[in-house]
Design a binder for these strands. Structure first.
Ligand code: FES
Ligand code: FES
Lengths: 145, 145
DNA sequence: CTATCATACCACTGGAATAGTAGGAATACA
DNA sequence: TGTATTCCTACTATTCCAGTGGTATGATAG
């Protein structure tokens, strides 16, 4: 029941980019350094967010990535689902071509459905802007992403 | 972000046993058949619950397992944590000897802490008795665990 | 115009965890 | 003695995770 590094790093990258000046392209090297991750590994995670249209890229010297929209327009849920695939705690809840035979008689399905709901409600209720604001306010002068 | 088969099967086994007459020992063979899992695999999962004191066992002919306490005394959270280890969505939250260096400066930690809370609050608020009751009421005449 | 450098992009590999299988020893009862 | 059960240990196959090497692209300096 753990979120993988894909999801964790994806979220940190998005917050990192959200903290940069709007419209400016930031190279992965900078993000990797601030976040304590290798550039090579980020290069594997970023495409997930890029393909989903969350980021704009620019190749070549002085290139990099930037957010496509303002931070308030990204929910953490969208980011995590994009990076992780699905946040459903069990596969039986991922409807697509995964129709579990026990659906009708399963004694635990209602419980899992409920868990799925509280998880998704929570992650969809938080935006990048929320994270950034809370964190700026909380860390005070230590603020340095 | 998936619960493994350990946790899923453990929960189903517990509900299955909770549905049996109180105090009676039920052989794994019966549970396995009802739940559509092999006895051999259940034998690997049951010890987790047994060692935690949730089950009483009886060896030999006409032996089996039964719950130690009444269904209302088991929260789903306890069962899942026993089978899965920890329900924390990221390792940084498992305090023990895992003091993440980024704790103080991490922009996503408050978010994960909140997610951890909603998950644990939910799973700790449901008992085996709740599952059993809801399910009996819902499945009506198809009730046959 | 060309060499160079910094960058995004693509493909691959090793290792760990998960999910399941298998054989057999110990125990209780009839 | 036979049978049905828990209990113990090891094995395998597959999937997922984490990380690395190499290529294409674009700006810029000489
Ligand atoms: S096992 Fe698939 S719905 Fe419960
Ligand atoms: S990375 Fe460990 S607390 Fe955020």
């Amino acid at each position: 029941m753990k979120i993988s590094t894909k999801g964790r790093y994806a979220l940190r990258v998005m917050v990192d980019l959200a903290s940069r000046e709007e419209g400016v392209y930031t190279p992965l090297r900078d993000v990797a350094e601030r976040q304590g991750v290798t550039v090579k590994y980020l290069e594997q995670i970023i495409p997930l967010l890029h393909r989903a249209g969350y980021l704009k890229s620019f190749r070549g010297n002085a290139g990099g990535y930037r957010l496509s929209k303002a931070p308030a327009n990204y929910t953490v849920g969208d980011i995590l689902r994009t990076a992780e695939g699905s946040l459903a705690p069990i596969a039986c809840l991922d409807a697509e071509e995964n129709d579990c035979e026990r659906r009708e008689i399963c004694c635990t399905l209602p419980f899992w459905t409920g868990l799925n709901k509280v998880i998704n409600d929570y992650v969809d209720g938080v935006t990048l802007a929320d994270l950034l604001e809370d964190w700026k306010a909380h860390s005070g002068d230590r603020y340095a992403i």
